[in-house]
């Protein structure tokens, strides 16, 4: 691994299957373990990415997950062509959710997804256009 050429991993997030939601995060977790990153860093990355994956399944019928790895920084990019986020500031508030009730019965939609992604990442960028889609970029820096 060099700083100039990050390792790139791509995953398709299947939006039609809630049961398999999280599989990309599981694979990323396994890969980062094999690379020998610190468990605390891996936990932060996998939790944040998992929340993102769940969001893509709940709101956007899936999308693309790309992970770029260098020794200095791990970047997770989640891109969907879903409905977009109307008010990003509101969506960042803990407890605010637009998820339907049936999602809450599955254990999500408590309005903690984006706040958790912010909590566990070192940098969070949200680029969202209503009717076009959402791209979320999270950066994680090893301690």
């Amino acid at each position: 691994m060099t700083e100039n050429e990050p390792l790139h991993f791509h995953y398709d997030v299947d939006g039609n299957n809630f049961t398999s939601a999280g599989e990309a995060s599981v694979q990323v977790k396994r890969m980062l373990r094999q690379m020998g990153f610190h468990p605390d860093l891996i936990r932060r990355i996998s939790v944040a990415m998992y929340e993102g994956e769940i969001n893509m399944v709940i709101h956007a019928k899936g999308g693309d997950a790309d992970v770029y790895v260098t020794p200095e920084c791990i970047t997770v990019v989640l891109k969907d062509v879903g409905p977009g986020i109307k008010d990003v500031n509101l969506a960042m508030q803990e407890g605010y959710s637009t998820a339907p009730d049936n999602i809450r019965s599955l254990g999500f939609g408590a309005g903690m997804g984006l706040p958790n992604m912010k909590r566990y990442s070192d940098e969070l960028k949200i680029d969202s256009v209503v009717g076009v889609g959402t791209t979320i970029e999270m950066k994680f820096l090893p301690a």
Binding site: K29, I54, G107, F108
Partner: peptide, 17 residues
Amino acid sequence: LTGLLNSQIVRTAHMLD
């Protein structure tokens, strides 16, 4: 501890080690 019963309880636990 949870009363939820779907595969995401295991995924959640797994993500958190």
